[in-house]
Amino acid sequence: MPKPHDMGGEPNDEPIDQSDHQKMDWEMRADALHQVLGQKGIRRTDEMRRAMESLDPDLYRSLSYYERWTAALELLMVEKGYLTSDEIDRKVTQLDQGAN
């Protein structure tokens, strides 16, 4: 059973949706953060791919592109000891409160 990312040739008769969505600020920042961490040697492309591929198949298929990146980055940063999930939870709460 192929992993969720391995989708070449999988039956799919959806037409290609050629519209491009306007990138949101958080998506552009997430994109840039990835590149910065890459340049610093903190995460590698191959590690990101591996982390994305390890996501639950239903989750992989339900997330948007940058959501997948984010899920994978969190996995890697926790694995490498830069962050903990609790820390991220707390920061999310703090940012939510700050936004009010």
Binding site: A30, T70, L73, E74, L95
Partner: peptide, 17 residues
């Protein structure tokens, strides 16, 4: 995920990474 992405960036900055 958008909020987690923002949190990750904020934490990486706080930690000086």
């Amino acid at each position: 995920y958008a909020r987690r992405a923002q949190a990750i960036e904020a934490l990486m900055v706080e930690k000086g990474v």
